[in-house]
């Protein structure tokens, strides 16, 4: 399987000269869910933010379907087929649910815009009934679903999700992860940054463990579940909901 998203030896951080990600690599094939795990502060969120274009990159390479990402501003990466859903503040609270989706639908071709918007809403019945309301009034789980629906509207090749389960009840996490699996089965590559290791291992095809901004372990969930190194990293596993 050839990779859609290729990240090689990425160096990134908010302040020049003080990187948080030192040397991280990632390969994501279409239809594949890659769980990006690691302890707090490992640089997982920073890595996908850098790929999305929100954190300055000072070294390495990143490409989507062979096209360089790093030379393009964040909004152009979306046009190439890279969608990113932040962990917090991932919807526009002062816009209606429908307007949140329309923002993404507007960016595609005019033709079929309405159909795409309705199709995205139909994927998530919970928010479909609240389409006229302000997104700020949605519950945490509904916001997460709205953010994923909006990301899907961009027609992504690869979807980057930053701790989608944070702060959600186990039941909602189950529903959300089932949707994510369905999205991947439709041919979208997914990078899932998670603190909720158990839930992530349950749906991931492959796992990459990041420690101190560097790749530490890599393999299938089955391989890593037996790996004492992973267990060691998660002794006293931190509560989810803390940005890494």
């Amino acid at each position: 399987m050839s990779a859609a998203l290729i990240v090689d030896g990425l160096v990134a951080g908010y302040e020049p000269g003080t990187p948080i990600v030192f040397d991280a690599s990632l390969r994501v094939a279409p239809g594949e869910i890659v769980a990006l795990l690691g302890p707090n502060g490992a640089g997982k969120s920073t890595l996908i933010k850098a790929v999305a274009g929100l954190v300055p990159v000072s070294g390495g390479a990143a490409s989507l379907d062979g096209l360089d990402l790093l030379c393009r501003p964040a909004h152009r990466r979306v046009a190439l087929g890279l969608a990113y859903v932040p962990q917090i503040e991932n919807v526009f609270a002062t816009l209606s649910v429908e307007d949140n989706l329309a923002l993404a639908a507007d960016l595609g071709p005019r033709e079929g815009r309405r159909q795409r918007l309705l199709a995205a809403l139909a994927l998530f019945p919970d928010i479909e009934t609240r389409r006229g309301e302000l997104a700020g009034r949605l519950s945490g789980g509904q916001r997460q679903m709205l953010a994923v629906a909006r990301a899907l509207l961009a027609g992504p090749r690869v979807l980057l999700l930053d701790e989608p389960s944070a702060g959600l009840s186990p039941k909602i996490v189950g529903e959300l992860f089932a949707r994510i699996r369905a999205i991947a089965n439709g041919g979208v590559g997914v990078v899932l940054v998670e603190q909720n290791v158990r839930a992530a291992l349950a749906i991931a095809d492959r796992v990459v463990v990041l420690v101190q901004g560097r790749n530490r372990l890599e393999g299938t969930p089955a391989q890593l579940e037996r790996d004492p190194a992973l267990a060691a990293l998660y002794i006293g596993r931190p509560a989810s909901g803390v940005p890494a």
């Binding site: 964040a74 909004h75 503040e89 526009f92 923002l103």
Partner: peptide
């Protein structure tokens, strides 16, 4: 106006 950084990653110029 609400969130320029989110607007970027939604694909807005």
């Amino acid at each position: 106006a609400e969130n320029p950084s989110l607007a970027q990653v939604v694909g807005i110029d």
